[in-house]
């Protein structure tokens, strides 16, 4: 019975599809459950005792300098005005291209790693030891332009200040009493 055969085959295919969907969803859910929670840096610093020694995820802008130490490096991540030091391998550090400074926004980075309230390996620093990093967004240069009004005012005020000072010096020369002897 070809009709029955094809009906069974279709049924099997559908079942396979449903099983696949369920398996994918289950896997996704398991991965979601295992992924370390993402914690804001400010919260991490404020409640350091609570998070001490835990595997976490943090996100922030890489700022300042990439400080190489042997086959590792330090980078500081800034989020909402609070920064934290991250201890990376040389390979992880090489993924960071832009660092946040004046006129520059740094790479936005996600770090998964172990948080230490008082790291025994780094003199008691509050830090993160990265297990993996991911670049979420590349940083970029920002142009900071001078305001023409300020430029004009600054030149005018400098001339005025200098003239007043010169005039004051001339008047002072006329007014100043001679120094008493011995000074």
């Amino acid at each position: 019975m070809p009709g029955l055969k094809s009906w069974i085959r279709r049924g099997m295919e559908m079942l396979l599809c449903v099983a696949l969907v369920f398996a994918t969803a289950a896997q996704a859910a398991r991965t979601e459950g295992d992924a370390p929670p993402s914690v804001p840096i400010a919260q991490l610093v404020a409640r350091a005792k609570e998070y001490d020694g835990k595997i976490l995820t943090v996100e922030g802008e890489a700022i300042g300098d990439l400080m190489k130490r042997g086959n590792h490096a330090w980078v500081n991540l800034l989020e909402d005005g609070v920064a934290i030091g991250v201890w990376l391998t040389e390979e992880q550090a090489s993924q960071i291209h832009e660092l946040g400074r004046y006129g520059n926004s740094g790479d936005l980075i996600q770090v998964r790693g172990t948080f230490h309230r008082a790291c025994p390996d780094h003199g008691g620093d509050l830090d993160m030891h990265a297990a993996a990093i991911q670049i979420l967004r590349r940083g970029s240069k920002k142009t900071v332009e001078a305001k023409p009004g300020r430029l004009a005012a600054s030149i005018g005020l400098c001339i005025l200040g200098d003239c007043s000072r010169s005039y004051g010096g001339a008047v002072s020369g006329k007014l100043r009493a001679p120094d008493p002897p011995g000074i």
């Binding site: 900071v144 332009e145 001078a146 305001k147 300020r150 430029l151 005012a153 600054s154 030149i155 005018g156 005020l157 400098c158 001339i159 005025l160 200040g161 200098d162 007043s164 000072r165 005039y167 004051g168």
Partner: peptide, 18 residues
């Protein structure tokens, strides 16, 4: 931008001082 800010500050403080 910063150069303009500091020139402005220099001029203003110099004028006030003088």
């Amino acid at each position: 931008a910063s150069a303009a800010d500091f020139t402005l500050s220099l001029g203003a403080t110099l004028t006030l001082g003088a």
